[in-house]
Design a protein around this nucleic acid. Structure first.
Lengths: 223, 223
DNA sequence: TTTTGTGAAGCGATTCACAGCA
DNA sequence: TGCTGTGAATCGCTTCACAAAA
């Protein structure tokens, strides 16, 4: 426990970001009754370098067998443990627009150990509507509903203008981390973890590469 | 033109990824009639280091005035130019599930110079339905509809199992770049640029940080 | 022999610190 | 004086190359 704490601090963010993809590949192998895998094979499937894969896993511990490879079940167990997948995490989605609704019915969340505990909005027209079996509630209710703190994650799927106020609500409701889809830099107190996903930023990056193609650059596509 | 080609090759991917956020901040300042900004101010607003901001901009050219700062209008023009925002880019969305529909009606795309040219699926139940003013068509029609090559970007919003086949269709339809929401590593020929966005990966990364908190780690939240 | 785990080298991005200008 | 633009220093991640182990 003490030892794991020390180790967690040392895992590079880039490694953490790759773990979910490793996990997904491994689960797909498990489904196909493959029980052992080498760093070469798994790296090829995930599009990485074998040395990088081994180094990534070495941050978590030593699970391989030299001359053989990794046991698929064991690796799934270990990566899952480090990603905190032992327990189902409750998520609150704020914003009952198209994106919020899509996220609410997204199967991928459930499969990875996340459960949508509620969907919230401020628009009277949206409140009360049924979305994927959940009733849209007013954001102000979240604070009261989460007195136990069981909802640890908030997803912001509101327009940019409402994002900061939404973040404030989520922080008041004792949410510990936020996934932000609004194209705004959020200010939250220390101890609340924010990750940003911006859909149009991704398109704009693609736009840069298209413009580069138009200037006759063919090399290294997208990054 | 020749010179710009050389420069484009030298811009780090990390810089490109930050440009859209700079642009957005600048546009918000322009709306508020602010016409000049220092690297300190813009860095603060975007959550970056002033030196990094200046270095990022220096890859594009020299637009600042020493002792004063940057002209907001000029900077917007320049960043827009490098991101290829001069022309509206046509996008095809594949997958008419919740996510595909949400993307189809997403205002952020239009505002940033992208236009949804069509939405496609393979499910007979979905085909023919109306989504945000567009009729869902069969994916096989895309190839014929894009003989002119005006659709440069494809968005994959299908289930993971269908993603590779969808990518193949998009490549056949002469799409030049792909934004992939399926949690799968796509194999496409050289010259086609792929960017991956995985919503549950983001939650899993948050899961790692929540697990770290449970182990008593308070430092550096999310990355 | 095969494949892991890892020190060391290599590489790219960030940050510093200051010269160059307005 | 104030702020940009940038070489130099630093930091952290990736990749190499090989010793260790099955």
């Amino acid at each position: 426990m003490k030892e794991e704490k020390v180790k967690r601090d040392k895992i590079p963010p880039t490694t953490v970001a790759r773990l979910p993809l490793y996990l997904r590949c491994l689960q797909s192998m498990q489904d196909r009754r493959i029980d052992s895998v080498s760093s070469f094979k798994l790296a090829q499937l995930t599009g990485h370098n074998p040395a990088q894969l081994r180094k990534d896993l070495s941050y978590l511990g030593e699970f391989g067998t030299r001359g053989v490879g990794y046991d698929v079940d064991e690796l799934i167990r270990q990566i899952g443990k480090w990603l905190g997948a032992a327990k189902v995490r409750q998520v609150a989605i704020v914003g009952a627009g198209h994106l919020g609704r899509a996220l609410c019915s997204y199967k991928g969340f459930i499969n990875r150990g996340f459960s949508v505990a509620g969907i919230y909005d401020v628009d009277p027209a949206a409140i009360g509507q049924q979305v994927a079996g959940l009733k849209v509630r007013h954001i102000d209710e979240l604070e009261r509903q989460n007195l136990s703190g069981s909802i640890e994650i908030g997803i912001i799927a509101t327009p940019a203008a409402a994002a900061q106020a939404t973040a404030d609500s989520l922080v008041r409701a004792r949410v510990r981390s936020i996934l932000n889809f609004a194209p705004v830099k959020l200010n939250v107190g220390a101890g609340v973890c924010v990750r940003n996903v911006d859909l149009s930023t991704e398109l704009q990056i693609i736009g840069f590469h298209l413009a580069s193609l138009e200037h006759g650059i063919t090399s290294d596509c997208c990054s």
